[in-house]
Design a protein around this nucleic acid. Sequence first.
DNA 1: CTCATAGGCTAATGGCATTAGCCTATGGGC
DNA 2: GCCCATAGGCTAATGCCATTAGCCTATGAG
Lengths: 187, 187
Amino acid sequence: MVVKKSLTPAAVVEVALGVVDEHGPEGLTLAAVAQRCGVVTPSLYKHVASLGELKTLVGVRVLEDMTEQFTATALGRSGDDAVTTLMHAYRAYVAAHPKRYAALPMDPMHDPIQAAAGQKLIGVMLATLRSYGLEGPAAIQATRRLRVLVHGFASIESAGGFGLPEDLDETYDQLIQMYLTSLRNES
Amino acid sequence: MVVKKSLTPAAVVEVALGVVDEHGPEGLTLAAVAQRCGVVTPSLYKHVASLGELKTLVGVRVLEDMTEQFTATALGRSGDDAVTTLMHAYRAYVAAHPKRYAALPMDPMHDPIQAAAGQKLIGVMLATLRSYGLEGPAAIQATRRLRVLVHGFASIESAGGFGLPEDLDETYDQLIQMYLTSLRNES
DNA sequence: CTCATAGGCTAATGGCATTAGCCTATGGGC
DNA sequence: GCCCATAGGCTAATGCCATTAGCCTATGAG
């Protein structure tokens, strides 16, 4: 039987993701999504509650996507190797989908719909640090530092915020070394 | 003579800044600005070319504001003291105007109107590192690392992105120490 | 076979940006 | 002191977008 394009909510989010990848977060509009779905705008309300909700769902989708990628990459590694790999994976993801990254909410924890996905992503970072044997608060601090580094770099790079793209690999390596050193000085 | 509210472009930007502070960057709308100016929307076009231009000008204004604050704070200091002070000033500015910070473009260099202001802000950071005697490329790398740290932390904190506000001062202190260490390991 | 409903559609409302064109006060040149 | 260009306000109109209401049809469960 031919598969009908039944247009599930998930499919709508998928299309929305495509729109974001092409036109950025500001370009994400119900009208644009509807057109790509071959449907008239109001029809979308049968699948999502509003533009706001769609944006939220897109955010969740991206968070899950990142979590999956990073998990796969970090599996079977530990220590500096794991951290280095995770940081590279983070940068690679954002480089591959720059517009998409800009669609991420910086406070996923404050939205009940996104909280779980955000928690999982942070969980991957926390798990990556496991082999350092950091206890409670120290582990949280280390995770925060990591988050600051990868997000800071990724958000600037993806926006083309560094004047020249020259030596950016070197810059990132330095950030990684800086972070690894901070981990060593902590235990 | 009573000073007329002549509504210069600068005044419009000022009002826009107020709107951003209150409602965030998405709330910055010509309609909102016009209302605050006690004027009808189309009238604004006599002072700014478009909403886009106004946003750009707001960005310039914020960049200049930050530059001024940081310059004043860093004057007369050098070495770790200067860096520490600058980083605290950055965080303080963003904490004082969280919405405003979100209105900043991450790629000021790509806009001819904002380039100068962006350059100056980066210049303050570069100057703050002067006493470390870093040469050319090394100085640029150090500036980039600094930028990544302060922006990463500030953007997450201002969005309320850290789960609990607990121990954020400690987190920031760790970031500062981490950065200072990276400076020492470099020369 | 029937009928509830999923999922599409059209029509209508209201907010916003933007453009065109009008109108008035004012201040600089004479 | 007079005259007019213009700065700076206004109304009207267009077009895009989100959102709501209400209609219509095919389909699949009973």
